[in-house]
Nucleic acid binder design. Structure first.
Length: 638
RNA sequence: GCCAAUGUAGCUCAACGGUAGAGCUCCGGUUUUGUAAACCGGGGGUUAUCGGUUCGAAUCCGAUCAUUGGCUCCA
C-alpha cells in the first residue's frame, strides 16, 4: 500500500506501483485532464511514475509556473524532433527552458534561417495535433553511455548529469532525447508556440569551442496567452529607446564613431535635468565635485593595474612620443587628486564625486543603443575614510541611492552583496571586517539582500543595486565597491590620531552607472512620456489661427520667463493637425489658444494621455506646472 | 571577437536582372481655420562603401563598414 498525502492534508491509500496519473484520476476526473506532472515529496515526476510508500503528492497542472515550464520543455523536444525530421544530419546538443520559452542548441553546418521557421512550426503543429504519448526510459549511467556511444554531445551531457539513473524521453516514431524530465504526458498538452529566432551560441558558453546554432522558441498554455505575449513584445518594441530616441530627436549614432552617442538638443535637456538633480542631491549629502583628465600617461595605468587586466579594452594614443591611455575608469585620476596633498583623519570622510567621461573598447558585437556603448559618463564618486567609518559611509550611499531612484519612480530595488572571490588581494581579516561592515549597513537599513558568494571584485566586496522598469525588466544601476588595492598601489596615506601614517579605505560608488545607459533605461521605462521635470519640451502653444499669433507670442514670453520649456506652433495648419503632431512628439501639455483665450488671458490645456481639455488662467497654469516640476511629480493632471 | 540576418530620400517602407517609387517630413502657394492629418505644386537618392559577374545590377557574387538578434565579455 502507498499512503499518499495531498496538499490539503487528505490521505489516500492506493496500491503500490500505481502510476501517478492513475492516482490523479482517483482524486478527480477534471484534475486528471489538466494534470501535466506531479510532485512526489517535492520532486517533479512524470504522470507514469509508479508510487509507493508514504509520500507527499502534489499535482502539477498548466495553472502553475512549474506546469508552464514543463510545457516549454516538452515543446523544446517537439521542436527538436521537427528539426531532426527536416534535417536528419542535425545533431541535438542541449535544450533547456528559459524565461518565456526555451531554446535548443543544434550542431548543424547548414544554417537554419528565419525563412525555415514556418516549415519547422508546421511540423511541430503536426506532432502536437497527433497528440503522441511521451514516455520515459531509465538507464544506469553505464548503459546510458553505451546507448549514446558515438554522440559526443550526449556523452558529455551524461558525464555532466547528476545521479546514477539517466533518463531518456521519446515520442512519435523514433524520436528520443536524453533528458532529466519531467514532460507532459502527450504532445497534445502543448498550447500556443512560436519559433522566435536563431543565433549562434558557443558550446558550454566557451568562446574557444565550436559555435552551435541556437533556435529560440516560446510556448504558452494556449493560443491566447501566446498572442498576449507577442502583443507585449510589440509594446516593448514600441518603447525601444533607439526607436523613441529617433522619433523624439534625442540622440543619434554614426558610422564615424560606432558606440559613441551624439546627444541632440532635446536629449541634452534630459541629460541636464538629471545632472541638475544629481548635483543638488550630492550637495545635500556633503559631496565635493572634481574633474580629472580623459587622457593620462600610460604609466599611471600600469600603476593602477588596469594595464595588466584590461588593456585589450582600452584606447591608447601617443603624445610627444610618450604613450598615453584614454581613461576607462576615473579612480586613478581620483587617487592623484587625493595624493596631491597631505590628509588628516580629521578631514575624513572625503567624498569626491566626478561625472567622468570614460572610454572602453567594447567588442563590436556587444553594442546596443545607449545601453552598451564605448564612451559614457559615469556618475562616479570616491570616498576616502577609515575602516571605522565604512559602515556609516555605506549607509549614507544607500540613502543617496534610494533618494535618487525614487525621483524617477524606481521603488522596487533589489540589492546583492558579493563576497570574497578565490582570486583576491588583501588579508582575510580586512575582507571580513569590510564585508561585515557592508552587511551591517544593509541590516541597519533593514534591506533584504541576496549574497553572491565569491562574486566580489578581486580588490574588495561590493553591493549592487538593481531596479525594475515598468515592464518588470531588471537593470543593474548602482554599485558600491570597497577597494583595498588602489590606495596601496598609489601609496595613499593619511595621518591618524596617533600621528602615524595609515592607508585610507577607498569606496568607489556609482548610482546611475552610466548617464547614457540610464537615459536609455528612462526612455524605455517612460516609453518616451517623460514626467514634466524631464520632458525635453514641457508644453507647446498651438494657435487656432494667425489672428491669435500676438497673444501666443506674449504667452510664450511669459512661460519662458517662468523658466518653462515651451515652444510655439504658428504653422498654417488646422488645430487638429497641430494636436496630432504634438501628440506624436509626446508633448506633456498642449496649450490651445484662440480669440477666446486671448480675451480672458487663459489657456486651453490638453493634457497628454487625457481626454478633455481644461480651461484655466495663464497664471494658474504656470503655478501648477512649476509646482509639478519642483516636486518631480510624474502625473500631469492639473 | 564569434554565428546569423539586415543596410534604398531626413523618417517609415516599395521596387527583387531591364529608366529607383509612395506616404510623412522639408520648401512655395491657396486657405484663416476651435481640439488626433485642409488643398495644390515643388525639392530631395552614385540604392552603406569598394570590387566582380552581366549587353544591363538596388537586385546575383566577394570584401569592408555599420546595424539588428544571440553567444562570449562587461574592470
Amino acid at each position: 500500500m502507498a499512503q499518499i498525502t495531498l496538499p490539503d492534508g487528505k490521505v489516500l491509500n492506493v496500491d503500490d506501483g500505481l502510476k501517478a496519473g492513475q492516482v490523479v484520476e482517483k482524486i478527480g476526473k477534471r484534475l486528471a485532464q489538466d494534470a501535466l506532472a506531479v510532485k512526489i515529496n517535492g520532486q517533479l515526476a512524470d504522470l507514469d511514475t509508479p508510487v509507493s510508500g508514504q509520500i507527499a503528492f502534489h499535482v502539477i497542472t498548466n495553472n502553475s509556473k512549474e506546469g508552464l515550464e514543463i510545457i516549454r520543455h516538452s515543446c523544446a523536444h517537439v521542436m527538436a524532433e521537427a528539426i531532426c525530421s527536416l534535417w536528419p544530419k542535425a545533431e541535438l546538443v542541449y535544450g533547456p527552458t528559459i524565461d518565456d520559452g526555451f531554446y535548443y542548441d543544434i550542431d548543424f553546418d547548414e544554417p537554419i534561417r528565419p525563412e525555415d521557421f514556418a516549415k519547422i512550426e508546421k511540423k511541430m503543429a503536426e506532432i502536437i495535433a497527433a497528440n503522441l504519448p511521451i514516455s520515459r526510459k531509465e538507464f544506469s549511467r553505464e548503459q546510458a553511455l553505451l546507448h549514446v556511444a558515438g554522440n559526443k554531445y550526449k556523452v558529455d551531457n551524461i558525464n555532466r548529469a547528476q545521479g546514477e539513473t539517466i533518463s531518456f524521453y521519446s515520442h512519435g516514431q523514433g524520436f528520443e532525447d536524453l533528458c532529466r524530465g519531467p514532460h507532459v504526458p502527450s504532445t497534445g498538452k502543448i498550447g500556443g508556440f512560436k519559433i522566435m529566432s536563431v543565433a549562434g551560441a558557443y558550446w558550454h558558453g566557451d568562446a574557444t569551442q565550436k559555435m552551435l546554432q541556437r533556435v529560440y522558441g516560446t510556448a504558452w498554455r494556449n493560443q491566447k496567452e501566446l498572442d498576449d505575449y507577442l502583443t507585449m513584445l510589440e509594446e516593448a518594441k514600441k518603447r525601444d529607446h533607439r526607436v523613441i530616441g529617433k522619433q523624439m530627436d534625442l540622440f543619434s549614432f554614426h558610422d564615424e564613431g560606432p558606440g559613441f552617442a551624439f546627444f541632440h538638443p532635446k536629449g541634452m535637456v534630459i541629460w541636464n535635468a538629471i545632472t541638475d538633480f544629481w548635483r543638488s542631491v550630492h550637495k545635500k549629502y556633503d559631496y565635493q565635485e572634481i574633474k580629472t583628465p580623459i587622457i593620462l600617461n600610460q604609466q599611471l595605468w600600469k600603476l593602477s593595474g588596469h594595464w595588466d587586466n584590461y588593456k585589450e579594452n582600452m584606447y591608447f594614443t601617443t603624445v610627444d612620443d610618450v604613450g598615453y591611455a584614454i581613461k576607462p575608469m576615473n579612480c586613478p585620476g581620483g587617487c592623484l587628486v587625493y595624493a596631491n596633498k597631505q590628509h588628516s583623519y580629521r578631514e575624513f570622510p572625503i567624498r569626491n564625486a566626478e561625472l567622468g567621461l570614460v572610454h572602453r573598447h567594447e567588442a563590436s558585437g556587444v553594442m546596443h543603443g545607449l545601453v552598451r556603448v564605448r564612451q559614457f559618463t559615469q556618475d562616479d564618486a570616491h570616498i576616502f575614510c577609515t575602516e571605522d567609518q565604512i559602515e556609516d559611509e555605506i549607509v549614507g550611499v544607500i540613502n543617496l541611492i534610494f533618494e535618487i531612484y525614487s525621483a524617477f519612480g524606481f521603488e522596487n530595488i533589489r540589492i546583492e552583496l558579493s563576497t570574497k572571490p578565490e582570486k583576491h588581494i588583501g588579508s582575510d581579516e580586512i575582507w571580513e571586517v569590510s564585508t561585515n561592515a557592508l552587511k551591517r549597513a544593509l541590516e541597519r537599513k533593514e534591506i533584504k539582500y541576496q549574497v553572491n558568494e565569491g562574486d566580489g571584485a578581486f580588490y574588495g566586496p561590493k553591493i549592487d543595486c538593481h531596479i525594475q522598469d515598468c515592464l518588470k525588466r531588471s537593470w543593474q544601476l548602482g554599485t558600491i565597491q570597497l577597494d583595498f588595492s588602489m590606495p596601496k598601489r598609489f601609496g595613499l596615506v593619511y595621518t591618524a590620531k596617533d600621528n602615524t601614517e595609515k592607508t585610507p579605505v577607498m569606496i568607489h560608488r556609482a548610482i546611475l552607472g552610466s548617464f547614457e545607459r540610464f537615459i536609455g533605461i528612462l526612455i524605455e521605462h517612460f516609453g518616451g512620456e517623460f514626467p514634466l521635470w524631464l520632458a525635453p519640451e514641457q508644453m507647446r502653444i498651438l494657435t487656432i489661427s494667425e489672428k491669435s499669433n500676438d497673444y501666443a507670442q506674449s504667452l510664450l514670453a511669459k512661460l519662458k520667463a517662468a523658466d518653462l520649456r515651451c515652444s510655439l506652433d504658428t504653422s498654417d495648419e488646422k488645430i487638429g493637425s497641430k494636436i496630432m503632431r504634438a501628440y506624436t512628439e509626446k508633448m506633456p501639455y498642449m496649450l490651445v489658444v484662440g480669440p477666446k483665450e486671448a480675451e480672458t488671458d487663459s489657456v486651453n490645456v490638453r493634457i497628454r494621455g487625457g481626454k478633455d481639455p481644461v480651461m484655466m488662467k495663464v497664471d494658474e497654469f504656470v503655478a501648477l506646472a512649476k509646482n509639478k516640476i519642483a516636486e518631480k511629480q510624474r502625473d500631469l493632471n492639473l
